[in-house]
Amino acid sequence: MTETTPSGPAVELTINGMAVRAEAHMTVVEAAWANGVPRVTGVGCLEGVCGSCRILLRRGKEVGVALACETLVEPGIEVLFLPPPAAPRHQYELAELSDGWDIQARFQEIFPEAARCRHCHGCVSSCPKGIVVEEGVALAVAGHFREAGEAFFECVMCELCDTACPEQIAPAHVGLFCRRITAFFHLRPPNLIHRLEEIRQDPPGGGKEKP
């Protein structure tokens, strides 16, 4: 592989079991490309918002997870691109949650594991976005859905926290559920509703306007 290594001071690391050399300013993704590392399929936005480029990262004895497109190469690190997360196990359709009064009960039905959080911090230490995942889950269990959803505002749905959670709580989906029901039940903006009402009363091309 040395012949494909770009010139300049090289950093040596391992990606998917392959020893590679990269330039110091490269991200792990660029290093993988430059060296033709196979099985790098989970790369998309290259700016840390699509959550696809999940990696396991070993620095000496320390093991963690991260997003490859935001991780710069370092000498001696070992990187393993992770497979995509499994399909979510928690099923619900928003349109079926018609009554806001029983929403706490419905939440417990859909996410029964959430109340069993054992506060292991696994989710928090795996989140590349520094989200207070554990606290968010606790807020959701207590019925504070708006605040819980807000905690997940910068969540990119990499689902690394879901992978880490020993109770299979799927914290990322808990957070998204909280955000979604907040909009679904409570976002009723007067300016939008007013305009929709004007359109309903006087639809475009409804005969009143000239064609």
Binding site: L176, R179, A183, L187, R188, P189, N191, L192
Partner: peptide, 19 residues
């Protein structure tokens, strides 16, 4: 916008609740 809100999308609001 209404459809997106029904799917569960949030938008920024002013202090009076307008979008």
């Amino acid at each position: 916008i209404r459809w997106l809100i029904r799917q569960g999308m949030q938008f920024d609001q002013t202090s009076t609740g307008d979008l």
